[in-house]
Design a protein around this nucleic acid. Sequence first.
DNA 1: AGCGGGATTTTCT
DNA 2: GAAAATCCCGCTT
Length: 176
Amino acid sequence: MDFLHGSALDVAPRLLGCVLERELDGRTVRVRVVETEAYDQSDEASHSYRGRTPRTDVMFGPAGRLYVYFTYGMHYCCNVVTGGEGEGSAVLIRAVEPIGGGELLSATDGPAKLCRTLGIDKGLNGHDLREPPLKLVATEPLPAAAITTTTRVGISRARDELRRFYETGNPYVSKK
DNA sequence: AGCGGGATTTTCT
DNA sequence: GAAAATCCCGCTT
């Protein structure tokens, strides 16, 4: 997973199509990443924008870790940390597509919903994605023609930045 | 079908 | 004290 060391903007589109293996209730659930968003320290909307805090500490750590944050009092969202130590960049996983045994899953079409469905909570914050119970498996990058780049949703700052990426036409992408 | 409020943690002004 | 990388449910058109 060497590509994780690039900037969040480079990593976000390459993460599309990659597979997450989540061990839940004694079974392994696999999902494909179909929608991502890039965040880095120069981004006004990023948690790392105003510097390192206890909450964003993981974002400034080594690439390949999981950054989980709690928001709006009820929801968790998960990110893959990218870049090097101290960079404060990460890619938000916005939507995934269930594959192999994922029929039991539903509602994976939003950052908070997919975390709830996969049982991701604060206990997995800082988790190394090379280890169970949650592994990131790299795949061949999607062809550029299959990737749509657009603006972000649900934020008020830096709305015009083209930092959101998703697989064109995939039904599991959070709706427009 | 569409709008509006609520839940409730962490951080910043 | 208020807003935030959100979603769900209930009430109104």
